[in-house]
Write a protein that binds this DNA or RNA. Structure first.
Lengths: 220, 220
DNA sequence: ACCCTCCTGTCAGCCTGCTGTCAGGATCGG
DNA sequence: CCGATCCTGACAGCAGGCTGACAGGAGGGT
């Protein structure tokens, strides 16, 4: 997933970015709300991690602005204030979830995944696709009872397809999702990863729409 | 919304039931998992509020069972255990959200509303044309329930017709639309693509106006 | 500090199937 | 019945996709 991190604390920010990246997500990290606004306008993010206390304003107003513009990108708010009133205010402003500092990085991973699943309409972490059984929560895949391991990039790509079943995703869209600013790539990387996924999961799992992009197979 | 409340604490249960009823939802309240299972099988609920600690077993297993059966009813879990591991376990098992006791009833309302909002989001609008169903956003076409794949050019041509229903488009207009400057074409390409589209979608989908051009059929 | 392993981007050569072209037949209008 | 227009099967060229090989680098273990 492509994630926008809005956090002014450099230590926490770096830790969060590194952790998320290790999960295979691509992260753009900004420290101010005006930067956040510019990024949001330019890139289709899958999720926003928003600190509520920032040097150039309160995040809650920023969030309200997003929702008022009709932006439905999932938002998880980060707050140091362990108060119910703050949680409620955040949720009513349109946040999808919140984390109270200090938070466990493992919990962050679970929340990210859970919010993303809910957002795309299917909170069920267990998915069946042909002879594959997939657990989105634990990132496990079984094929005929045998476990298959994916690397971070492979999982990120597969997850993108799983979250849009039946929909064609262009190579450009997939690259946007896999690579953050400054980490763009210029070769047939996506094709290569698709090829590796097919070798592990079976050729039918990913269908090619020549000239258009890729699509999740229908399991047959 | 029709809500199933699974909670063994009679005081808390009554308070929750009264509160969400006041919000205008109808509530069925059970205190044990086996009852919950029976209700779920009999009634199509919009949402389940599930306490994780119940006299006849742990709710988390119940939730996993639901998801394993393919039940996608939204579930909000209630837990007295304010532990990270429990929240993560719940979300990973397929919960849509959670509340930690003691929780504020206003927060409960906010969460209910948030979950409900997510589920009323209707999917992409489908255009119907005779026996065809067309999803313009995802470029999907179904004919009698079966998916039909179009190539890039075919879709471009079909889209042009779809955007001008009832209007006659000349071959010149269609060529202008399909081919950029410098890529013009000099043969009966349009005729050929129309033929291919008819073979895939049915002959009546595109009507020929002899000497004038083509027009989208009216579905009969 | 060193080695080892595995991930991942890059490239080149092969292969697939989309697409334009053509020709012969079909259909329509007059 | 004739000419114009359209339909459609066949086919070849080529852009786009596939995949095996390889190297740089990050990470882990000793």
């Amino acid at each position: 997933m492509r994630i926008l991190l809005v956090e002014d604390d450099t230590i926490l920010g770096a830790a969060v970015r590194d952790h998320i990246s290790a999960d295979g997500h691509s992260t753009d990290w900004v420290t101010r709300l005006d930067e956040a606004g510019e990024h949001l306008a330019a890139v289709p993010y899958d999720l926003v991690l928003l600190d509520l206390m920032l040097p150039d304003g309160r995040g809650i107003g920023f969030l309200r602005g997003m929702r008022a513009r009709g932006d439905v990108t999932p938002v998880i708010i980060l707050t140091a204030l362990d108060q119910i009133s703050d949680r409620i205010e955040g949720l009513n402003a349109g946040a999808d979830d919140y984390l109270t500092k200090p938070f466990d990085l493992a919990e962050l991973s679970a929340r990210l995944a859970a919010v993303a699943r809910r957002y795309c309409g299917n909170p069920n972490p267990l998915v069946e696709l042909g002879e594959l059984q997939i657990d989105l929560a634990t990132r496990g895949i079984w094929r005929a009872g045998k476990r298959i391991d994916l690397t971070a990039r492979e999982w990120a790509l597969f997850e993108a397809l799983l979250q849009h079943p039946g929909q064609v995703l262009s190579k450009g869209q997939l690259e946007d999702r896999l690579y953050a600013f400054g980490a763009e790539v210029e070769s047939n990387t996506i094709e290569v990863h698709v090829s590796r996924l097919r070798k592990k999961l079976g050729a039918r799992v990913i269908e090619t729409m020549r000239g258009l992009g890729y699509r999740l197979g229908d399991g047959r």
